[in-house]
Design a protein around this nucleic acid. Structure first.
Lengths: 192, 192
DNA sequence: CCACAATAGTTCGGTACCTAACGACTTTCC
DNA sequence: GGAAAGTCGTTAGGTACCGAACTATTGTGG
């Protein structure tokens, strides 16, 4: 490591950095620091909001991990995808509703919902009904079989959710939910 | 609302609930309470871990919202998907690495990575190199163009991440990241 | 009433993502 | 030293997800 000559300190850390990168091996805390160092080196002095980076990237990581685990451990037995489960759940809790509202509630694009409803309809878990007053609209409801499925499935899913929050107390779970709601709101803002 | 006769309180709230559901319209806080009430009614006395439900379901919601927003606002200009960005970023920060490690780092199934690398390779952002010592293995590195792309893209992405955490102070971001890490760890545990 | 804008759901083309099966290669162990 | 077992990355088949273009219907102003 070269040390800058005294009196030339104004340039700031030049950190020659001839691509002798730290390999990603160490413990979580160390890895974080390493990552921050590496990114800073790449940026060459540009400002870095590492706190945001860490927070946001962990959202995606956690979501993917939870989703995968849910599908493998809980949902696979019922042949229901994560998205499909959400649909069944919303219909179970709120009752029959129109597809536009359902898409909004499930945070799904309407085109996506169409496909998934078709899948669920093939499985006879939901049924679509045309609204007589307005032939463009369609409402969706659980079938009897769908109700049975989600009634049986939900308790298991909720137990799974509990297991995903192991190590957190209720206050922490609430904090987590609240912080995430802030992020979701930021991400959903339509203005620029 | 029927009030239980005095002296019969042992049964607890029967809540006749003949399917007169509250429609999902009200403000966030109210909606939450409504949802909890609805679910409890469906469960008919079975225990419900609502705190976990709220925390976990918000993870997925936030992740989807952030991802969509990132792809629309930041990534679209560069023709890079969210997953593709992650790959470029990891390679930029940590340098050339083998695909297995890269998949792990990006939290992607190896089969998925293959396809995405093919896409990125077509765009000439990364290149694969066979390891001479072991012909099964392949390393991946950024091309010059890939380096340019991520160098230019990352600052914008990080600014986007900052905007996603608007309203949170640094301590809250750290809390968020930490709580999410706990969840991810729970979801990644291989034991049952 | 009738063009024509607005709206609801579907279709379409594309990517990303998964798991399971595969084929090439390496290591192991008799 | 050669067959068996293990370990790579890729391929194949499937669903989920997106945005944009399309179709059918309803509302509206002249």
């Amino acid at each position: 490591m070269r040390v800058a000559f005294e009196g030339t300190a104004t340039i700031g850390q030049v950190t020659t950095f001839d691509d002798e990168r730290v390999q990603p091996e160490s413990s979580t805390g160390d890895r974080l620091l390493d990552a921050e160092r590496q990114v800073k080196a790449r940026l060459g002095g540009k400002p870095l909001d590492f706190a945001s980076l860490d927070a946001i990237s962990n959202i995606y990581r956690a979501a993917a991990a939870v989703r995968r685990r849910a599908e493998a451990d809980v949902l696979a037995d019922y042949n229901v995808s994560f998205g499909g489960f959400t649909i069944l759940w919303v219909l179970w809790v709120w009752g029959e509703m129109e597809t536009a509202q359902l898409a909004e509630e499930c945070a799904l694009a309407k085109g996506t919902l169409t496909g998934m409803l078709t899948t669920l309809e093939k499985q006879e878990l939901v049924k679509r009904t045309k609204v007589p007053a307005d032939k463009r609209r369609v409402t969706v409801a659980l079938t009897e079989s769908g109700t049975d499925t989600i009634s049986e499935l939900f308790p298991k899913f909720n137990a799974f959710e509990s297991s995903m929050t192991a190590g957190l107390d209720v206050a922490e779970m609430q904090t987590l939910a609240e912080l995430l709601r802030t992020v979701t709101t930021n991400a959903s803002d339509n203005d620029d």
